[in-house]
């Protein structure tokens, strides 16, 4: 992440201007390669048939959903410890993208579950943990939407994010425990024996594509947020001058 070194939002804006076209092209290429591999190269699973293709969207979305919370936690540290001006811009703009990808993970999981389990939703440990993660994203978004002053909201959101980061592993552990208590045998294990490379390669390429997509979107959203704050400051100055 180059964000850490860039103390100055203006220099960050200049850098995004240069980086964004390349990032967008790289994302498009990675998606083209990933989709090609997923649809035309990857074999069907002997048990699940072609529905295994859903995994190539579902799993990268899940990885990013979790990874983005980790990124938000790092930014939260940047906000609270170093009071870095870009840190809460990064945290704020990551939240809606993280929520959207977690939502993709949930919906594709449900659409995968219907043919595999015969129902859209089971209170499976994994799905439930992701649902809780989604709810926590919505909580952070609700917090950002509640308060007008970005600095005040940023610090509060940073504390909530860090508390969430401490709690998420505990929630995961609790839900796993609760799940084994209520459903002894799981029908489908995504993390069973190691995935064959014919599945693994498309999965990794798709994960790369999703990661690039996130970086592109995140950098653009950060640029927008910096501009939004500039507009806000200019307006406040204008109101103060008038």
């Amino acid at each position: 992440m180059p964000l850490i070194d860039l103390a100055n939002p203006t220099r960050f804006l200049a850098l995004t201007q240069r980086l964004l076209p390349g990032l967008a092209v790289a994302t498009a290429l990675a998606f083209a390669a990933g989709l090609y591999l997923a649809w035309f190269v990857a074999p069907d699973d002997y048990q699940q048939g072609a529905t295994v293709k859903i995994m190539f969207v579902h799993v990268p979305a899940a990885w990013l959903g979790m990874g983005i919370w980790a990124l938000m936690s790092l930014s939260a540290l940047g906000t609270l410890v170093w009071r870095h001006p870009l840190a809460d811009v990064a945290a704020k703009t990551a939240a809606p993208i993280g929520a959207a990808l977690t939502f993709v993970c949930l919906v594709t999981g449900a659409l995968w579950g219907r043919p595999m389990w015969g129902t859209y939703w089971v209170w499976d440990a994994r799905l439930t943990s992701v649902l809780v993660l989604f709810l926590m994203y919505l909580g952070v978004l609700a917090l950002w939407r509640t308060v007008e002053d970005p600095a005040r909201a940023g610090r509060a959101a940073a504390i909530l994010t860090l508390v969430g980061a401490v709690n998420l592993p505990i929630i995961k552990f609790s839900v796993d425990w609760w799940n084994t208590l209520h459903q002894p045998a799981s029908v489908l294990r995504l993390d069973g024996p190691a995935l064959h490379s014919s599945i693994m390669t498309p999965l990794l390429v798709m994960a790369l594509a999703f990661a690039l997509l996130f970086v592109t979107l995140h950098v653009s959203a950060m640029r927008n947020e910096i501009m939004r704050r500039r507009v806000r400051t200019l307006r406040l100055m204008q109101a103060g001058a008038a």
Binding site: D44, G49, V104, L111
Partner: peptide
């Protein structure tokens, strides 16, 4: 396009939802 088997609708729907959210 490879054959999608009996659950084609679910696979297409999953990709469609993902594409929609990304767009």
């Amino acid at each position: 396009m490879t054959a999608l088997g009996p659950h084609a609708a679910f696979i297409v729907a999953a990709y469609a939802v993902a594409a929609l959210v990304i767009v």
